[in-house]
């Protein structure tokens, strides 16, 4: 059963830029969907539409059967930057979206989320005192504590180094296991998409379209060094290459030994 339904989505900005063209996607409950694609393929636009921050020009998005016409309580988002409020402590940042809840429940959820992202003792700190990776963990916790049905991640790890990224993947999966929300994650890191996703959507730029969808049926936790992992990765890379080639240009004849002839 699909939780997130995207039908014939079109987005043209007021300056005439066509960011998305006829994008349709169905994402199931608890599924993690990765979205990769070259720059200008409308990945971020797509997420902003699902988050209700922008409105589509054509088509519609529904979450759990409800049409999205603005920010929706069942949809959470983690941006590329942590976007923490510098005047709130870490705990208050995590609880930013929980003001409607009774205090005890709020404190409970905050403590639980901070524990899962490994920042249990950081609740009283200020965001400025945290490293970039820790701040992004707080941002992820802030999105999770609201218990969204659909969680959107917009290249949330792109500014971080490889070690931090790997540990954040673990923290993310740990949080995901709790309520199993549907996750849509935009990334430019193919390895990341294979590590986390059940399906990877490759998008094609100018205007942004769905180019191909690739299923990743590996057991979690996924080992990066196994052959099946490598195989999926290579397949996505190849699809990405094709997606970025201009249309109607036949593939250039491959001369694998042409380099050698130069010598």
């Amino acid at each position: 059963m699909s939780v997130l339904e995207i039908k014939h989505l079109d987005k043209t900005y007021s300056d005439g830029t066509r960011a998305l063209s006829d994008v349709s996607l169905d994402v199931g409950a608890g599924e993690i969907l990765g979205i990769v694609g070259g720059s200008g393929c409308g990945k971020t636009t797509l997420l902003r539409l699902v988050a209700g921050l922008d409105l589509p020009s054509e088509g519609f998005i529904s979450v759990g059967g409800e049409r999205i016409s603005g920010p929706h309580p069942a949809v959470g988002i983690v941006f590329q930057e942590p976007r923490l409020l510098p005047w709130l402590t870490v705990a208050d940042n995590v609880g930013f979206g929980l003001h409607h809840l009774p205090v005890a429940e709020r404190i409970n959820r905050i403590a639980n989320a901070l524990e899962r992202v490994g920042l249990a003792s950081y609740g009283k700190r200020w965001p400025r005192e945290l490293s970039g990776g820790q701040q992004q963990r707080v941002a992820i916790a802030r999105a999770f504590v609201a218990r969204p049905k659909v969680l959107l991640l917009d290249e949330p790890f792109s500014a971080l180094d490889a070690f931090t990224r790997a540990s954040l993947h673990e923290h993310l999966l740990l949080l995901w296991e709790q309520d199993k929300p549907t996750i849509v994650m935009v990334t430019h890191d193919v390895e990341e998409s294979v590590t986390l996703s059940d399906r990877v959507v490759v998008m094609k730029p100018h205007p942004g379209r769905v180019f191909e969808t690739i299923s990743v049926t590996l057991e979690r936790p996924r080992d990066h060094l196994t052959a099946p992992f490598e195989k999926v990765k290579r397949r996505i890379h190849a699809t990405l290459d094709r997606s970025m080639r201009p249309e109607n240009t036949p593939q250039a004849p491959r001369k694998s030994d042409s380099g050698a002839l130069w010598w």
Binding site: A51, G70, P71, P73, R83, G97
Partner: peptide, 23 residues
Amino acid sequence: KLLEVGRIFRLSRFQTARRILLP
């Protein structure tokens, strides 16, 4: 970008003023 965080959590105009603009 901070105002967008407020939008995501569906703060009213007044709440946005009090919880984001003011501080």
